[in-house]
Structures are given as structure tokens and as C-alpha cells.
């Protein structure tokens, strides 16, 4: 982290972190690919099947 003695570096670091958070939150809104939602459905179905057998 930037030291309090170096406000210029603190300003640059803050600018970088704010932009990073923005990029990251944009990536978070990217649509979940079908292969992941399909995989989750299969895994849940398998779990339910296992539970039913118990």
C-alpha cells in the first residue's frame, strides 16, 4: 500500500484500484456460459439421485 508520506503514489494507486474494480465488476456481469449452468444442473440431479437412494 502507498504510504501516507507519498500522496502522489496514493493517488495513482487509488486510480488503479478503482479502475481494476470497474473492470472486475464488468467481468462479473458477463453471462454465465451454458457449459457451467448445464454442469450445475447435472451435479444437482446427481445429488438428488444419491439422496433418493439413501
Amino acid at each position: 500500500m502507498a504510504s501516507k508520506q507519498d500522496p502522489r503514489k496514493a493517488k495513482i494507486d487509488s486510480y488503479i484500484d478503482q479502475n481494476l474494480k470497474k473492470v472486475f465488476s464488468e467481468l462479473e456481469t458477463d453471462e454465465m456460459p451454458d457449459q457451467i449452468t448445464d454442469l450445475l444442473s447435472v451435479l444437482r440431479a446427481q445429488d438428488e439421485e444419491m439422496q433418493a437412494k439413501k
Binding site: 473492470v23 472486475f24 465488476s25 467481468l27 462479473e28 456481469t29 458477463d30 454465465m32 457451467i36
Partner: peptide
């Protein structure tokens, strides 16, 4: 956690 995980994977 999947949206954050995907963002991390993409980055």
C-alpha cells in the same frame, strides 16, 4: 461465488 470466479478466470 460463480460470477466472481468467472471474472477471476477471465482476468
Amino acid at each position: 461465488h460463480l460470477p466472481a470466479l468467472r471474472a477471476f478466470a477471465l482476468s
